[in-house]
């Protein structure tokens, strides 16, 4: 067996060799733009003329002179708090259900994944259409029961709820990952449990869920990152921030500051504040890894 120091040196080299594609890409395409955007956050930059250093002015103004900053942050936090647990629970439940090998299950799996495949532009237009208070599908269905559906995208808080619903609708993506994870669970574990006389619920609790924790962890982290950066649907459906700004998400405000008002320095500051929040939350989740994530290795 090779001596420890040689082992480490070789591992050092091999390790870096393996991650070199990412490392190269990071240094070439990511690091510099990131550094530049940090720099820009300390400048006045309207894109069309050179950036001018202003120190922490952007950050100061964000925190003390911008009501919309707090409003949009709050909208986004609300969204994250509601949609992340919903998405994780829905994803797992759906995956468990679709893991049952009944006839025609492949068709159902396709159906549930469909919403994630359809391009956002079409789904957004589709939803605006469906949520139209007079001629839309939803209110027409409600009318059958004698309920007068609200003007969904035009009234708060319904606009916000509509967007949450739309985000749930795209749960098929995470479902696929859960399914892949489920298939990874060695069958013999289940067989052994059956021999021991365990019922399906016990099996799920003691085998399935623990073995799925690595992918649950993945989806949780990605959900958090995604929900804090939620932008596209809000931009297409409520570009002005929605009724009473109830759907004025942080990223939407950021976009407006950057591209509509050409206030890129300010927007960069906003981006880095968001970064810190996401980073902090993700770090928290990572720290809890040891407590609940179970790697088969």
């Amino acid at each position: 067996m090779a001596s420890p120091s040689k082992h480490t040196a070789k591992q050092y080299l091999t390790g870096y060799l393996f991650i070199s594609p990412w490392l190269i890409g990071f240094l070439a395409f990511t690091a510099w733009p990131f550094l530049q955007s940090i720099y820009l956050s300390f400048t006045r930059y309207n894109i069309v003329s050179p950036a001018k250093w202003v120190g922490i002015a952007n950050y100061r103004m964000l925190l003390t002179q911008d009501a919309l900053f707090y409003k949009s942050a709050w909208v986004t936090i609300k969204f994250a708090i509601v949609s992340v647990p919903l998405a994780v629970i829905a994803g797992i439940t759906l995956a468990l259900l679709l893991n049952i090998n009944v006839k025609g299950i492949t068709v159902f799996r396709t159906i549930f994944y469909l919403p994630s495949i359809v391009p956002t532009v079409a789904t957004s237009v589709l939803f605006i259409w469906i949520l139209n208070p007079n001629i839309g599908l939803i209110n027409k269905s409600l009318a059958l029961f004698g309920i007068r559906g609200p003007s969904w995208l035009n009234t708060s808080p319904w606009a916000f709820y509509s967007l949450i619903l739309m985000s749930l609708w795209g749960v098929g993506g995470s479902m696929i990952i859960y399914l892949a994870g489920l298939k990874d669970i060695p069958v013999h574990l289940y067989e052994a449990a059956t021999i021991d006389g365990a019922n399906p619920v016990k099996k799920m609790w003691h085998i399935t869920l623990p073995m799925m924790t690595p992918v649950i962890f993945f989806n949780l982290v990605m959900s958090i990152i995604g929900s804090f950066q939620y932008f596209t649907q809000a931009y297409v459906i409520t570009p002005n921030g929605g009724p009473e700004q109830s759907t004025y998400f942080y990223s939407l405000y950021l976009y407006n500051r950057a591209w509509k008002y050409l206030d890129m320095g300010y927007a960069s500051a906003m981006a880095w504040m968001l970064f810190m929040v996401i980073f902090f939350m993700t770090l928290l989740v990572f720290k809890t890894q040891k407590k609940w994530v179970h790697y088969g290795g």
């Binding site: 957004s124 237009v125 605006i128 139209n132 208070p133 007079n134 001629i135 003007s151 969904w152 995208l153 035009n154 009234t155 297409v236 459906i237 009724p243």
Partner: peptide
């Protein structure tokens, strides 16, 4: 408000 939703141009 309900009618304004129909005035949406998208």
């Amino acid at each position: 408000l309900r009618f304004q939703a129909g005035l949406n141009d998208i």
